[in-house]
Design a protein around this nucleic acid. Structure first.
Lengths: 245, 245
DNA sequence: CGGGTCATTGACCATGATCAAGAGCTGTGG
DNA sequence: CCACAGCTCTTGATCATGGTCAATGACCCG
């Protein structure tokens, strides 16, 4: 759960090239060092409940968290997956709009909110990077709305697999390719919550893709993609668009 | 289609208190005046196609536009409704990610992209306001994901009506209340595209709400809400949450 | 009056939800 | 070392919600 000591400085931070602080000059990083602290969570633990008062904003350093909403009767919808470098919280707002839950073991780098808001006004690099990240998030959220509103169960599963495959390839500094293997970071239930399906439908559609030769399974979580084109064809997306993304 | 002449200055602009320029000082507005121009569109006309090169960013001044995505086979999903003061385009990106279409007659205030990007770096007020607006948009998009992923057709319709009712009340500087009347700015088909339904289902559910006494219809587009609580109860949302929003 | 657009309604069907049983895996304790 | 509890996941049977196809209605404007 603890990171090695040398990872606890901005200098050695694994997300220093992508996070909200990635544009900072050394002296700005020093200022950030003064107001930051790390927190770790085990898989399944809540990080924030919707409505909670937030005394910090944070970056995901390692692990995955989910952003989700739950209705009174228990229906829940995941509205975002937070991966390393993603930002949690928002300057200028006091309470959290959504639940944040650690999906895997998770470490986040927290900045005390008031001082961070101060830095935002004095350090345009931070504000500019946050704007850029927020605009990207907004585009992703809108792309996901097409998945939720218009795709079939099979297309939804294929879309999720394609996204995880691409992200995983990027993380390993490789390009996604035929024969690639990756691990599903989510349970069937989390996938269902992300896709607006039930866990039974998720299970059935994964079996269907396996029977159709689109994917192979090694255990419940390890996925092999014999043909990336075949998988992308199942997403329902325009082919050019998928490759471009 | 043309605005009265006196509306074409920032000083008399109807959205000067909400738009991306709302925090600007007079001299900053003068700089914006130099790089801005208006465009008008009739209901139904396209403003931008996904993939188009964008030489401007813009604010909606009057009217409504939709932001949407279409799949090869014609399925389309609206991913946002752009109301007066909402921002179109993004600094730092060249091509449009989604289609923008005028839903009603529409006037937008365009800023040439390059000079606007320059102003963003020299005028922190603009960048700060854009960040705030973008964070709000992101929250709304995520709230809508719950509607798309988890609500029933009836709840979706009730949610849309509740949103339009609230927005309409806000526009008229009133609070939403029992007996209120408003106009639907969307066709049944646009509502379907927004809600991830077919137009037949939209029509049926509106009829069902009418038969259930939740709403009354005056023609196809004018809606009366006898009891706001009754409407909110149909959205499936937590009551407190709905009132708070 | 006729043509066009937008909306409503009906009949039928398919997709995915629900309910239920059981398989596979892991960790714990006798 | 095995038995069992507690998971997650799979699969089957049935049902309901919303989609599809089709006909008709309401309204507007030439």
């Amino acid at each position: 759960m603890d990171m090695p000591l040398d990872a606890k400085t901005c200098w050695n931070c694994p997300i220093k090239h992508q996070a909200v602080c990635s544009r900072c000059e050394p002296d700005e990083l020093t200022q950030l060092e003064d107001i930051k602290y790390y927190r770790s969570y085990e898989a399944g633990q809540p990080v924030i409940w919707a409505g909670d008062h937030m005394e910090f904003v944070a970056s995901v350093v390692t692990g995955i968290a989910s952003l989700s909403q739950t209705m009174e009767d228990g229906r829940t919808q995941m509205v975002g997956l937070l991966l390393p470098a993603d930002f949690i919280g928002r300057p200028g707002r006091d309470s959290a709009p959504f639940d944040v839950v650690a999906v895997s073991d998770l470490t986040i780098c927290c900045f005390r909110k008031r001082p961070f808001e101060g830095l935002m006004t004095t350090t345009p690099r931070i504000a500019a990077r946050l704007l850029e990240m927020t605009l990207d998030e907004l585009d992703s959220a809108r792309e996901w709305m097409l998945v939720l509103g218009r795709k079939t169960a099979r297309e939804k599963i294929a879309s999720l697999l394609a996204i995880i495959a691409r992200r995983d390839a990027a993380l390993k500094q490789l390009s996604a390719r035929d024969g690639m293997v990756f691990e599903l970071p989510l349970t069937r239930e989390s996938m269902a919550d992300y896709l607006g399906l039930t866990l039974e439908t998720v299970s059935r559609q994964i079996s269907a893709l396996r029977k159709g030769g689109i994917i192979e399974l090694d255990g419940k979580r390890r996925v092999v993609v014999p043909s990336l084109d075949a998988l992308l064809a199942e997403t329902g997306d325009d082919f050019d668009e998928s490759v471009r993304a």
